[in-house]
Design a protein around this nucleic acid. Structure first.
Lengths: 331, 331
DNA sequence: TTGAAAGCGCTACCAT
DNA sequence: ATGGTAGCGCTTTCAA
């Protein structure tokens, strides 16, 4: 069933059918109704490939992250996919893993599928050289980066000010008398580095040195996190609070504290990051910095549609985060 | 840059370029090298729309679930997307929400995009009439359903035997002397119903009646779950164990127990379901039934590729689940 | 308001 | 082994 069949049945030309299909005003109400009737009756759906061939778009956006199984990315993907759909775009999903070559490969794959744009969620890039895959992508289609900052044409960055957020939490803890803060993190993504720097700078600002022993890089693995913290405790390395760059790390740390009979927050307050479902699952419930995934992602999609609409758009937008107080730390 | 440009630059016909592109054996090594060189140099990528138009496929699979933000679906989507990519297929993601009309709408949307197949993860359908959207879909493309069972042509169901798994847990608890078991669940999906029935049947098998007060339907909301369990406790409705159809519900219940000063598992053992990340986050760590998402999803993709390859495939496959023992319950 | 026809860039069949 | 060419089903311009 194609446009020719419809045209024939409706007794008009394919041009007219096409006009009806695309809502052109230059069709008489009568023919329009007639054509619509035939379409309905035949259960006809235009062939998107043919349309794509002519228009050079299939209204699809490539959405990339390291792994959708991750609770944070999952939420982001969910919001993005929904927002895009409102604008009539579908999401071509791609979990790239952390390997940079794979990322490049998958970006190429999506570009080969002729997506209209790319949305990268939390792309990892420590060094400038790592960003070539983004430059290549942006050379072909508008590319928006969520929680990443890069200065490349045709690239739009929507970030959360995690540096400031982390900075603020250290200040808060300091005011409560916590000077020795254990910092837990896992990845050195843009976002990861922002947080780490926020932590360090705040300490300096408070006049305290940065104790490297109190900055622990861990894998996102519960038992490993627990082990790491217990090791520190056993080694009598003193700290009076914990901040983690991710809720999961914070919870791992909480387990360690609890095993050692330390009370949270009385003995050691704990602050997580991302304000994920895990916060509510922890016991006591985890206070966490909300980095605004939802707003971030909706903004990203808005930016993109603005770009499509030819509007002038800022290349960089930053939202501020805020602490959600629960039981492990209160202001 | 199209196939004509390449042909011209390489001094061959477009037919030859096409052959090279599609790995036809009927090309001399020499011309092949020449063409490949030109392609490489020009950075040419075939237009998938044109190809799709001729072949009537763009190697895309529609992947649907109620919401990717859900930790279980996120994992499933992740596995599926990866598996599909191995076979050269991309995933067109769609979070449908629970509304049946929306599902139908989104399925139509994906079908309009001419996806090669549909994978539905945990589609909800209580009554037979609710399945029309699946029938319609299967009439057009092969449809595989993960954790759902339906008898429709061109439909392939891959399920986990959650009925049996739930049944078994009740038996286990009974052997430990727990006869009054509180059952917590949230949705009445196929999967949800399987579990509920497994629970009820096991109780009957043990010679105990099903106490409706000990079967609580709750929202997936921590405070609501806590409140529900605390209410039961306060009303002196006795139970000596808890089983939940989802880890999150189990954790909510644990919070309630802990608030009431009950020890887990000494006073009340707790068993969750899905063996998600949440299990490790709980304190004590949650024993949970692993419903094999990974295997389930990989199997689903295998089934699909077998269908594509014209192999004869079973319409129904069932995997068995197994309890992962942690701290809240041990055999 | 409507129709005719020229692409869009590929694949595959038929020749050679 | 290679080339010519007819579709694939649509959009869009140009004429009427």
């Amino acid at each position: 069933m194609n446009i020719y069949d419809i045209a024939e049945r409706a007794g008009v030309s394919i041009a007219t059918v096409s006009r009806v299909l695309n809502g052109s005003p230059n069709v008489s109400t009568k023919t329009k109704a007639k054509v619509l009737g035939v379409i309905e009756e035949a259960g006809y759906t235009p062939n998107v490939f043919a349309r794509g061939l002519g228009l050079n778009t299939m209204k699809m956006i490539g959405v990339l992250c390291t792994d959708v199984a991750d609770i944070f990315y999952a939420k982001a993907v969910s919001v993005i996919e929904n927002a895009l759909r409102q604008y009539g775009y579908d999401s071509l999903l791609c979990s790239t893993g952390k390997n940079i070559e794979d990322k490049q490969k998958y970006i190429d794959l999506l570009l080969a599928k002729r997506v209209d744009a790319l949305i990268l969620i939390g792309s990892i890039f420590k060094e400038e050289t790592d960003n070539s895959h983004i430059e290549k992508a942006a050379a072909k289609v508008p590319t928006v980066i969520i929680n990443g900052l890069i200065d490349v044409p045709n690239t739009y960055c929507v970030t959360c000010d995690e540096y400031q957020a982390m900075y603020d939490q250290v200040i808060h803890l300091n005011k409560k008398g916590c000077h020795d803060i254990l910092y837990l993190y896992d990845v050195e993504s843009y976002s990861g580095l922002q947080k780490l720097n926020g932590f360090k700078d705040a300490l300096k600002h408070c006049g305290f040195g940065v104790n490297p022993k109190l900055i622990a890089k861990v894998d996102k693995d519960m038992s490993q996190i627990e082990a790491t913290v217990i090791e520190l405790l056993d080694a009598d390395i003193h700290f009076s609070a914990i901040i983690a760059s991710e809720d999961q790390l914070a919870i791992g740390a909480m387990h360690a504290l609890q095993k050692k009979g330390l009370r949270i927050p009385e003995d050691i307050p704990v602050i997580g990051f991302n304000n994920s479902l895990l916060c509510e699952c922890a016991m006591p419930k985890l206070s966490s910095v909300d980095n605004m995934v939802e707003t971030l992602c909706n903004t990203a999609v808005n930016v993109l549609t603005d770009v499509f609409d030819g509007k002038t758009v800022t290349n960089k937008m930053t939202l501020s985060a805020k602490l959600v107080e629960r039981d492990t730390f209160k202001l």
